[in-house]
């Protein structure tokens, strides 16, 4: 469980941190219409080998926004995330991040710009300890110095105290929830401007998912970090996000404010079964 008391005590210190990261996005998403989006996709299509998976995807994420990408199995959600983070090359279209065309960038260069992915299935460095995993998260050294990385580490431990307890434990011996925690923490250690989280809830008990989402909520509030959440669990995703896109068979079929989508008849019938 997350200790809210502890979080409140240190929120002052973390406020300084968020100033350091230099995220100057608008605090309110409604006022952000004139602002340039942090991430913008235009007419993106891609696939594997001969098989096309995504058709003409356009979406955007504003500064400080939490956007959900929902859809059934095989809709192309993970493919889309992998294309954004550069692990997969796009066939057509453009990806613009923080004003820069990153369509042809390699994954490591994209990570350096502050667009970081928490991959599906966690993909931790199993033979290394939690702390080593977290330190590798700071590999791009966006924090700037060893001291700043150490401060980030403290901050992440404060946010997810369970990781601190087990910092010397090898990650392949962790439970699923702890591994997911570690994967998210590793993503945070990169000091992202935009964190892509692929299937946060996959294989986790509902209360653990709640804990993790609460942690993300806190980070979002305190750091004004943007999130793109890919979820199969539509209910969870729509409750937490500002806006959402619905992906179906490789096309975006629906988009809008999350609260509207949650109420929409189509979503209820297709995904929520009610």
């Amino acid at each position: 469980m997350l200790r809210r008391g502890e979080l409140n005590k240190t929120s002052g210190a973390r406020h300084k941190q968020s100033e350091l990261t230099g995220v100057k996005g608008p605090l309110d998403t409604s006022s952000s219409t004139q602002e340039k989006p942090l991430l913008e996709l235009h007419g993106l299509s891609t696939g594997y080998g001969e098989t096309q998976v995504l058709w003409d995807i356009s979406l955007h994420v504003m500064h400080g926004e939490v956007v959900a990408l929902v859809g059934a199995n095989g809709a192309g959600k993970s493919t889309l995330l992998n294309t954004i983070s550069g692990l997969l090359q796009s066939w057509e279209g453009t990806i613009v991040f923080a004003g820069r065309d990153i369509t042809r960038y390699r994954a490591e260069r994209i990570a350096k710009l502050g667009l970081v992915q928490v991959p599906q299935g966690r993909r931790l460095f199993g033979g290394l300890t939690i702390e080593e995993n977290l330190r590798l998260g700071a590999y791009t050294n966006r924090a700037g110095s060893a001291r700043a990385i150490a401060a980030d580490l403290e901050r992440v431990y404060m946010l997810l105290p369970k990781l601190c307890e087990r910092r010397k434990q090898l990650t392949h011996s962790l439970s699923g929830g702890e591994q997911q925690m570690c994967a998210i923490a590793r993503g945070l250690m990169a000091r992202p401007n935009l964190l892509l989280i692929d299937e946060l809830s996959l294989g986790l008990a509902p209360n653990i998912v709640d804990d993790l989402l609460t942690a993300i909520d806190n980070i979002h509030r305190q750091e004004k970090m943007s999130f793109l959440l890919v979820e199969q669990d539509v209910q969870i995703a729509l409750e937490r996000a500002h806006r959402a896109y619905v992906l179906e068979g490789g096309h975006i079929v629906l988009s809008g404010p999350a609260t509207d989508l949650l109420k929409s008849e189509k979503i209820r019938i297709a995904y929520l079964g009610a």
Binding site: E108, A111, P119, L128, Y139, R186
Partner: peptide, 24 residues
């Protein structure tokens, strides 16, 4: 060293290392 840790990261999970900014 940082270089050595990056190599270990490649061994443990190459794609994750790449996603974290290691020029694998």
């Amino acid at each position: 060293s940082r270089f050595g840790y990056a190599l270990i990261a490649i061994r443990e999970n190459e794609q994750a290392a790449e996603a974290l900014g290691v020029p694998t």
